[in-house]
């Protein structure tokens, strides 16, 4: 494993900067579709900056887990992000197992997020944690299966290698296996980032929350890390979707500045298109009943399984 420190640093900065911007863009566009002016796209930055400077109120019954969880959530998302090629193949980091490590890191973050929700022993945190685990128990296998669809073509679970393969065989983009897997991951994206129809990121109703319920007891810096971590995780999943499944414009290892600039433009365009899709889904749908959520995620799982199957059928 050879590390390129500049590449590593640049991608880290890009992740940190782009993630809140993306959340902000989605929020801003949603507001526009709700006939209001809404926050500016960079509002999420200002919120995080504010929270970083605020004091904290720590619940009485909180243990070390409560203090530890925000860092784990934040760092695991960031680390996962370094394994996904954003502008350039290969990604700066390639841990053993590739895609498996990515899913594992996201699971680690979620595990600590749920623990952090449980730790202060408030009723809502516990409810949120239990719901989050229910959702992820189905979302996670669907994500794995969908990634495997591509991994089998590529003959590797390394994400950069997968992106390279899909890039070289352009026709692959319209391959039914590919499309099915793409759809599956899109549904997983909605679930994992707490979006309608699974969760409502804008809700004030403590009884219906999933993701927000786990954060209710956090304040100040910890809350900033939690929120930032969540937006980085969203960016990672989106990048996975646009760059591994649709690596148009992605620059190669020896790309010059022009190619990198083109890569950035293509990446931004693809992300914005994906944001638009998310916004449309969120605007036109109501939230599912909690017990219907597994149905939706099972659908994602079935799609991913079909993708895998058609992989062999239509080879």
């Amino acid at each position: 494993m050879n590390l390129d420190p500049i590449h590593l640093l640049l991608q880290t900065l890009l992740l940190l900067a782009l993630a809140p911007l993306l959340s902000g863009t989605i929020r801003s566009w949603k507001a526009k579709l709700q006939n209001r002016r809404g926050p500016r796209p960079w509002q999420a930055f200002l919120d995080i900056a504010k929270f970083l400077r605020k004091d904290m109120v720590i619940p009485e019954h909180a243990s070390w887990i409560f203090h530890f969880a925000p860092y784990v959530v934040f760092l695991s998302a960031l680390l996962a992000g370094l394994m996904v090629p954003m502008l350039r193949i290969p990604a700066p980091l390639s841990l053993f197992g590739g895609a498996l490590a990515l899913v594992g890191l996201l699971a680690l973050g979620r595990f600590f997020l749920a623990l952090g929700g449980l730790d202060p022993a408030s009723a809502f945190g516990g409810m949120g944690s239990s719901r989050e685990m229910t959702v992820s128990a189905i979302a996670e296998p669907a994500l794995m299966l969908a990634i495997f669809t591509v991994a089998i073509t590529a003959g590797s679970t390394d994400l950069s290698q997968m992106a390279r393969t899909t890039q070289s065989t352009a026709f692959n983009l319209l391959n039914p296996a590919h499309v099915l897997a793409f759809a599956a991951i899109f549904i997983v994206l909605l679930a994992e980032t707490g979006r309608i129809p699974v969760d409502n990121p804008a809700t004030h109703l403590e009884l219906t929350m999933i993701h927000e319920a786990m954060l209710l007891e956090y304040s100040g810096r910890y809350l900033a890390y939690m929120e930032w971590g969540a937006s980085v995780k969203q960016l990672v999943l989106m990048t996975l979707l646009v760059n591994v499944f649709f690596p148009v414009g992605l620059a190669g290892a020896d790309a010059g500045p022009l190619a990198l600039a083109f890569s950035l433009a293509a990446y931004a365009a693809k992300l914005l298109a994906l944001c638009a899709a998310v916004v449309v889904v969120e605007t036109t749908n109501a939230k599912l009943r909690l017990f219907r959520v597994p149905d939706l995620l099972s659908a994602a799982f079935v799609l991913a399984a079909l993708a895998l199957l058609s992989m062999f059928l239509f080879r």
């Binding site: 006939n35 809404g38 926050p39 500016r40 109703l205 927000e212 956090y218 304040s219 809350l223």
Partner: peptide, 20 residues
């Protein structure tokens, strides 16, 4: 949508811990 307090970067939140 008429008054839309969010355009100022102001949100209503569910928990006092998140509040300023």
């Amino acid at each position: 949508p008429v008054y839309d307090i969010e355009r100022f970067g102001i949100h209503f939140v569910a928990s006092p811990r998140h509040a300023d």
